[in-house]
């Protein structure tokens, strides 16, 4: 019996925080690839500490719905899941290449496959592009458009910037958008000056966050100048200093994120049948005609 456990941050204050986790879990359930799909949280229930005891399967894949490798994926989650003998060297990662580690979870005395975070997986690049398609409602968006991939800088976690650069570089190599830039909230180049970094009249701004919350709904819209105060709201696109900015909101809310969760489990050995193809098909943006 094969089980998937998606672990995410959650929130004591914001109900939107866990919404993408539930949505992606539902998408994956619908594929039937796993006998059960469970969700666990740091700030909601079931907590990381107790989620594994709700799991029935003997092949358990744990996928963190986090953007980068760092404090949560390297310390908090392994500790709270009680992964015996965990050491970050198990992943042998350069900050982007964590794949999986198979360890006994002491809570259930069974092996689990602890996967790297979704945010650093190569398939995440496609989700960012898909997010741009969704927000512009154009499955071929690219020509005449710039793309800004935005996240925290290194202030909180050096790997955060690595993940943003990694995906921005990969998208740039595809020559699909006229320009692709990685911008940051707390270091140069800053998202506050977005129009200065682009020549294109239209720029899609995709924040590399798992869920919508303070950063994506208040911080970034105000910093970029989409609105004076987030309570006023803003249009998509909104023109700032002559640049039309298509603000996408958290990339983690894009339905295709379910694909990255599946990719992580597949890389760790899960048998998925046709689930990957199914998810790519069911989460597709309709072509405009």
């Amino acid at each position: 019996m094969q089980s998937l456990v998606i672990v995410a941050h959650g929130s004591h204050l914001n109900p939107e925080s866990s919404a993408p986790t539930y949505d992606h879990a539902d998408t994956i359930r619908a594929t039937g690839a796993f006998d059960e799909v469970r969700t666990g949280f740091w700030k909601e229930e079931p907590h990381f500490r107790e989620v594994l005891r709700t799991v029935e399967g003997d092949e358990v894949y744990v996928v963190p719905l986090f953007i980068s490798e760092g404090y949560f994926t390297e310390q908090v989650i392994p500790r709270e899941l009680r992964l015996a003998g965990w050491d970050v060297s198990e992943w042998d990662s350069d900050g982007l290449s964590a794949d999986q580690a198979t360890l006994v979870a002491e809570d259930i005395d069974r092996e689990v496959h602890y996967c790297g975070p979704v945010g650093t997986h190569r398939a995440m690049t496609d989700v960012i592009v898909r997010r741009a398609e969704s927000v512009t409602n154009d499955a071929d968006v690219g020509e005449g458009f710039g793309l800004a991939v935005v996240g925290h800088g290194t202030e909180r976690n050096e790997n955060s910037a690595k993940a943003i650069e990694y995906h921005a570089d990969r998208i740039a190599e595809r020559d699909r958008f006229d320009e692709v830039k990685a911008l940051y909230m707390d270091e140069e180049p800053e998202v506050d000056d977005l129009p200065e970094h682009f020549e294109s009249d239209d720029v899609v701004l995709v924040p590399l966050f798992i869920a919508d919350g303070y950063h994506t709904q208040e911080d970034i819209p105000e910093d970029v100048g989409l609105c004076e105060d987030h309570t006023e709201g803003y249009d998509v696109p909104e023109t700032v200093d002559g640049t039309r900015i298509w603000y996408a909101g958290a990339v983690g809310t894009e339905p295709l994120m379910a694909d990255v969760v599946l990719e992580r489990a597949a890389d760790a050995g899960a048998d998925l049948g046709t689930a990957l193809d199914d998810v790519r098909e069911t989460t597709r943006v309709a072509t405009g005609d």
Binding site: E45, P46, H47, E50, V51, R53, T54
Partner: peptide, 11 residues
């Protein structure tokens, strides 16, 4: 029951 009161049955 698991959805309304997570992990309570397991505990």
């Amino acid at each position: 029951v698991e959805t309304i009161y997570p992990a309570t049955v397991a505990n």
